[in-house]
Simulated scan of single mutants.
Amino acid sequence: MKRPLYVPVAAVLMLAGCGGGSTEKQFEGVPLERQDPGPTHVHGLGLDQRTGTLFIATHTGLFEVPRNEQRARRIGDRFQDTMGFTAVSPDLFLGSGHPDIRDDAPPLLGLITSADQGRSWKAVSLRGQADFHILRSRGRNIYGYDSSHERLMTSTDGGERWVENDVPEAFLDLVVDPTDTSHLLASGAATLYESRDRGKTWRTSGVVTGLLGWPTPQLIYLVEQRGRVQ
């Protein structure tokens, strides 16, 4: 991997999984309506490059931090546990996870999308069938790692229909080649994997692991658990 001379990393957050949705309308024993626990257990980050607003997907809802502000504020009044959060563009967010505990909904959200920066969400597919802890998108191609069944789901039509693929182990992260949507890198517990056929087959590519980034064809980031960037 090519090591950059400078990486503007403000914070490195190792993302952890969550269990199924709760049926009690409480958080830590207190009715949800009486409190706001704030952003706890961060699952993902997104940045609106037009405005500089940072979006934070957490176990207790989606939050935003506008440019030059120091405190996160809740988006809307929802406490949805948003997993697999990906800000594809300012007008398209992808997500998954578990519903607001006040909602009458299945515990697994499948693929959901938002066209208004998380103020509302639309169910797209696999509702009640998938818990995507990782979602990656290149155009109409979407890759989703479903932690509830340890499988990689691939779609070429924006998430309406899916193909299921086996994975060598549970994935920590996944990235897509910016110039070839069939070329993938994924990290497991202690191994880096590579696929050149949209996740149908995998080969070992290294014995390191961590969070991945692939912003340009020539530049791949790997952030280890202790924060070191390769």
Rank of each mutant, 00 (worst) to 15 (best):
M1T: 13
M1E: 15
M1D: 15
R3C: 09
V7R: 15
P8N: 10
P8A: 10
V9K: 15
V9A: 15
A10R: 11
A10T: 11
A11N: 11
V12S: 12
M14I: 13
M14Y: 04
M14G: 11
M14E: 12
L15Y: 07
A16G: 15
C18N: 14
G19A: 05
G20R: 13
S22V: 12
T23R: 14
T23A: 13
E24R: 10
K25H: 12
F27H: 12
G29R: 05
G29D: 05
P31D: 11
R34D: 15
R34H: 14
P37I: 06
G38Q: 08
P39R: 09
V42S: 04
G44S: 08
L45A: 13
L47E: 04
D48S: 08
Q49K: 15
Q49V: 13
R50H: 11
T51Q: 11
T53W: 04
F55V: 03
T60Q: 10
G61S: 05
L62Y: 02
F63S: 01
P66F: 09
P66T: 07
R67K: 15
R67L: 15
N68S: 13
E69I: 10
Q70N: 12
R71Q: 15
R71D: 11
A72E: 01
G76I: 04
F79D: 06
Q80G: 01
Q80D: 02
D81H: 03
T82R: 08
T82V: 14
G84P: 02
S89C: 09
G95V: 04
G95F: 02
S96H: 01
P99Q: 05
P99Y: 00
I101G: 02
P106F: 07
L108A: 09
L108K: 13
L111E: 04
D116K: 14
D116M: 08
Q117D: 13
Q117H: 09
R119S: 11
R119V: 06
S120Q: 12
A130D: 00
A130S: 10
D131N: 08
D131G: 08
F132E: 00
F132P: 00
H133I: 01
I134M: 00
R136I: 02
S137C: 10
G139P: 06
Y143S: 00
Y143P: 00
G144H: 00
Y145M: 00
S148D: 10
S148A: 14
H149N: 14
L152W: 00
M153Y: 05
T154L: 02
T156I: 14
W162T: 02
N165A: 06
V167G: 00
P168M: 06
E169L: 05
E169Q: 12
A170L: 07
A170Y: 03
F171Y: 07
D173N: 12
D173Q: 05
L174G: 00
V175Y: 01
V175L: 02
V175N: 01
V175Q: 00
T179P: 08
D180S: 13
H183Q: 09
G188L: 10
A189V: 11
A189P: 02
L192F: 07
L192Y: 02
Y193L: 03
E194W: 01
E194L: 04
R196Y: 08
R198W: 01
R203T: 15
T209L: 01
L211C: 08
L211H: 08
L212F: 01
L212W: 05
G213S: 12
W214R: 04
P215L: 04
P215F: 10
P217V: 05
Q218R: 14
V223L: 12
V223E: 04
E224Y: 08
E224H: 15
R228G: 13
Q230T: 14
